[in-house]
């Protein structure tokens, strides 16, 4: 479940230690943009120590490392991979080769730290036009890749435009991201909504990305979490409908029938799969709120 993944600045002990209390599905310890060049070394150590000694209530924990075009990324990986995190969020992935290079580095570190090879998943940030164009090839470059995420500000700059309230500049990219992610069998996660005080704008954007098929959204402020959960969680009516569909499909299967009608509509396999997905989300909701 990746409805929300909260960015936490890598040099802020307060946020790193308390961030999981805000109820997001996942946490992103940020060693990249949230950390100035002069604090890269101390943040890396701090994040490593927090990862080693904290539990985060079982949330999915990832670390955004510095890009593979910087001098920092190898040290970032060496610090956090032995901590058995769920994944690495990699900025500015342009080509599948970036993922293959990362895959090799991760395997070497996992082997040295007795972490099962392949355990560290990769979340790819596609923040350039080239990265977006190569989305499917990037998503299939390694079995470690578990999600692709369009960029926000960096991508807008690379497209020679700027971010608008309406998100016009990202509209086609978001649609393409869904197609690439589904074709590759990975999650599509949306970029952050940068204006933390614009609740209406966040709702509008989250409704749009949910309808496109996104699995969730990155967040930069705890106040954004309940809004996105409310939108991404199935409604009671959706859950009820899904229950009916799954029950009817099971009954049909038991009677050896291929398709069945529910409330006057033919239900076939894709509809059943969608209903099961809805129930899965609803089950996770009732089990523990955030997860």
């Amino acid at each position: 479940m990746r409805r929300t993944m909260l960015y936490l600045p890598g040099n802020n002990p307060n946020m790193l230690l308390r961030g999981h209390l805000f109820g997001s599905d996942g946490l992103i310890f940020d060693l990249e943009d949230a950390v100035s060049r002069s604090e890269k070394d101390s943040s890396r150590i701090l994040v490593r120590e927090v990862l080693r000694h904290s539990g985060f209530d079982g949330r999915e924990v990832t670390v955004r490392i510095n890009g593979l075009d910087t001098e920092y990324w190898r040290d970032d990986l060496a610090a956090v991979v032995p901590c058995r995190i769920h994944g690495i969020r990699v900025p500015k992935v342009d080509t599948p080769q970036t993922i293959r290079d990362l895959d090799d580095a991760l395997s070497a570190l996992e082997s040295r730290a007795s972490v099962p090879i392949g355990a560290t998943k990769v979340f790819c940030l596609l923040e350039t036009a080239l990265g977006v164009w190569n989305a499917y090839d990037i998503a299939t470059a390694s079995p470690r890749v578990t999600a692709i995420i369009p960029g926000g500000e960096d991508l807008a700059a690379d497209l020679r435009t700027s971010r608008s309230k309406e998100g016009t500049e990202l509209e086609w990219i978001r649609r393409m991201m869904i197609v690439a992610a589904r074709a590759a069998g990975v999650d599509a996660l949306d970029t952050v909504f940068p204006s933390v005080t614009d609740e209406e704008g966040l709702r509008r954007e989250a409704l749009f990305t949910k309808q496109l098929g996104f699995d969730g959204k990155s967040v930069i402020h705890p106040a954004q979490i309940p809004i996105i959960h409310e939108i991404y969680d199935p409604t009671e009516a959706e859950v009820e409908k899904a229950r009916k569909i799954v029950a009817a499909a099971r009954e049909a299967a038991a009677r050896g029938l291929g398709a069945v009608s529910v409330d006057g509509r033919m239900v076939d396999l894709p509809v059943v799969r969608r209903a099961e997905f809805t129930l899965e989300r609803a089950g996770a909701m009732t089990e523990g709120g955030a997860r």
């Binding site: 002990p13 230690l17 070394d41 101390s42 150590i45 701090l46 490593r48 120590e49 927090v50 000694h53």
Partner: peptide, 17 residues
């Protein structure tokens, strides 16, 4: 109000610098 792990991280970073 630094926890033990934060103090340790800060000492390590300061010493390496």
């Amino acid at each position: 109000g630094a926890l033990d792990i934060v103090l340790g991280a800060r000492v390590e970073a300061a010493y390496l610098r």
